[in-house]
Amino acid sequence: MAHNKETKKQELILFLSDTDEREGLLGKKNRKLLTDPLTDNNPITVQVLGICSALAITVQLKPAIVMSIAVMAVMAFSNMIISALRNLIPSRIRIIVQLVVVAALVIIVDQILRAYAYDVSKELSVFVGLIITNCIVMGRLEAFALGHGVYKSFLDGIGNAAGYAFILILVAFFRELLGAGKLLGYQIIPDSFYEFGYTNNGLMLLSPMALITVGLIIWVQRSRSRSLIEQN
């Protein structure tokens, strides 16, 4: 009986973290899952995924933050669900299963947004629905959740979503500040500046500037950590 209990526990651990290694909830390896996507394995600036939404909804800070939370919720739960089902899904139809899971989660998120944050959900319009097609979500499901335990997949989802959110919020910060002189809708640049001749930069509100801002972030990141520069 005791033996049986022990194997069950072992199985559970395997199910949750896919290695026999015992490790704290936020051990070194697990922490890496959270922090890597923020820096040297950022989904936007290094893997260059999820660019479309980064261009579309970073005009203001608020939608960017809401979008980040939405993506984080979808990624964390879809990673968990797919990881839990990973031994059951036939590999031939795995994309369909992934899509169904993600779509269901996106619809839930969308409905919640409509219920509790209607204005923002209107601003985000189709882009919430388009989380389904966000390459980061599918990419992490394929690359990570299908081969790792539930808990690790959860951390990976949170980590990648945080990396996405970090860039999104950074870009939105500069775009709203320089393009409209505001942050989160509150005027930041004082009136005296405008009286002095300062003018908001209209180009910041157009999507090319989002691309350029992302490009500049990539430039800064690559000059800081040279290991990212490809050798050819």
Partner: peptide, 10 residues
């Protein structure tokens, strides 16, 4: 082009 799109009024 930068100035044209950034500061259309000017």
């Amino acid at each position: 082009a930068f100035a044209f799109f950034a500061y259309p009024l000017y």
